[in-house]
Structures are given as C-alpha cells and as structure tokens.
C-alpha cells in the first residue's frame, strides 16, 4: 500500500456496474481505475501498482481464469472475483488459481466493501508484520502461536491450530477446502473432506458460543470456510 488512499482496479464489461462500484469505493476514499476487457486489465495492472483488483469473470475477450493466472505471474495483488450464482466449481477453480475471494452478482456494495477491506487488511498486515488477528472474541497470535477467546488462552491440538492459523492468515476471506486440506494434511489428502469436516467441528466447539450456529468460523457451501471478523463478513448478504 503506497499511500493512505488505496488504489483499486475494477474490471467489468458493463459500464453501469463499473459506475456504481466506482461511486461506492470513491465515497469511502478509495482511488479507482477501471477497465472493460481482460486485455486492458492485464495491461493496466502492469502499468500501475494497485492495492486490489476486482475482476468480473465473464469478460468478453479473455477467460477470467486466464486473467488471474497472468496477473499472478508477476504480482500478488489481492484479487476479488465477481461471479454469477450456481458456479461453485468455477469459483473454486479461480480461488485455487490465486484469487483471494469472490462476491456473487447481484451484490450489495456493503458486501463488496467488506471483502475488499478484508483483502487490504491482509496485505497491510503482511507489510507491517502485525502478528495478531482478531475475529470477534477470538484472537490468534500468529507469531507466538497462541489463541485466546475473551482473553482466556485456549489449548488447541497442533492440527486444530494449523487449521485456525491458515484461516486467520486469510481472515475475512474465503479459504477453499482443497487449500486447507493441502496445507493441514498434505497433498495426499486433498480428496478427504471428511478430515476437514471433523476438525472444523472440533474447532467450533472450542471457539464458538454455539457450535451449531457458528459466527466466527463460517461455511461457504461448496467452496470453503471463512474466519468472519465482523457481522458483515458473516455469510452472504440476504439476496
């Protein structure tokens, strides 16, 4: 992040969508650039240093996945995908290629802002080395490898901690099942969602007030999990 007004590149072929996204972000003090094709987006991303890219995956010229791949070739700028509903497999594919999160069209500005701010916070945390991630009553100290709930230190098993650690590193953004399985259990277990379901349950029993109605470790059906930091992060906007 170069200045205190973060710069965002908005890529969508619909002018009216670019317009309201621009207005929504500018009202919050962001600087916006926009592009209407994948080629223009890639060109723009090489010319300017953006703090975040918001990318519609239904572009007329280049497949969204290709745009993500190309940008990931040289840059780790956060990318948030705009997609239509009922394409869980497509979302997962793009997240696996390196996108940071997604928002389903049609969406409310509050939801997009929440996702964008989360991605920016993560970038800032990485830049400043801030080790503690807060999510409601939960704090995860990534440096000291400790977890506390309402100030009380929690005791987690190594795998429970590892799971929480990865979610905390991506706090407020979604992490796919595949990513979690690979990072916690290794590539050999990428097709064993079973482990993940059980450990998520164990973890919820330790960190949630009501483990059957989680507010911190929330599920994105068919995609993955999210460590919700504030109520706006908690599940999709009603739509």
């Amino acid at each position: 992040m170069t200045t205190n007004t973060p710069a965002i590149l908005v890529v969508d072929d619909e002018a009216q969508i670019r317009r309201f996204v621009r207005a929504g972000f500018e009202l919050q003090g962001f600087t916006i650039h926009d592009a209407e094709t994948g080629a223009a987006a890639i060109r723009d991303a090489t010319l300017r240093a953006h703090d975040l890219i918001i990318l519609d995956i239904g572009l007329p010229d280049i497949d969204g996945a290709q745009v993500v791949e190309r940008i990931r070739g040289w840059s780790d700028v956060p990318i948030i995908i705009l997609s239509v509903r009922a394409s869980e497999a497509e979302k997962v594919r793009l997240l696996e290629l390196g996108a940071d999160d997604y928002v389903v069209k049609p969406f409310g500005m509050a939801e997009l802002l929440a996702r964008a701010k989360a991605a920016l916070r993560r970038r800032q945390r990485a830049a400043t080395g801030e080790p503690v991630v807060h999510a409601g009553p939960l704090s995860v100290d990534l440096a000291a490898r400790t977890v506390s709930l309402d100030g009380q230190r929690l005791s987690l098993t190594p795998k429970e901690y590892r799971l929480l650690q990865i979610l905390a590193q991506h706090a407020s953004n979604v992490v796919t099942h595949q990513h979690l399985l690979r990072e916690v259990w290794g590539a050999a277990h990428i097709d064993d969602p079973h482990y993940l379901r059980i450990f998520v349950r164990k973890l919820r029993k330790k960190i949630e007030a009501d483990p059957t109605q989680p507010k911190i470790l929330v599920t994105e059906l068919g995609v993955g999990y999210r460590l919700a930091q504030r109520p706006a992060d908690n599940g999709p906007e009603p739509a």
Binding site: I17, R19, F20, A23, V84, K105, P106, G108, A110
Partner: peptide
Amino acid sequence: SHELRTPLASILGSATVLEPA
C-alpha cells in the same frame, strides 16, 4: 437470465451505494 440479471445487478448495486449516503 443473463440479460435480466445484468441490469438487475446495476440497479441493486446502485441502490446499496445510495442507501447509506
């Protein structure tokens, strides 16, 4: 559905930008 949803996304999005202004 694509042709209906695209303008709908603009209407809904614009309304949510206006609402808190």
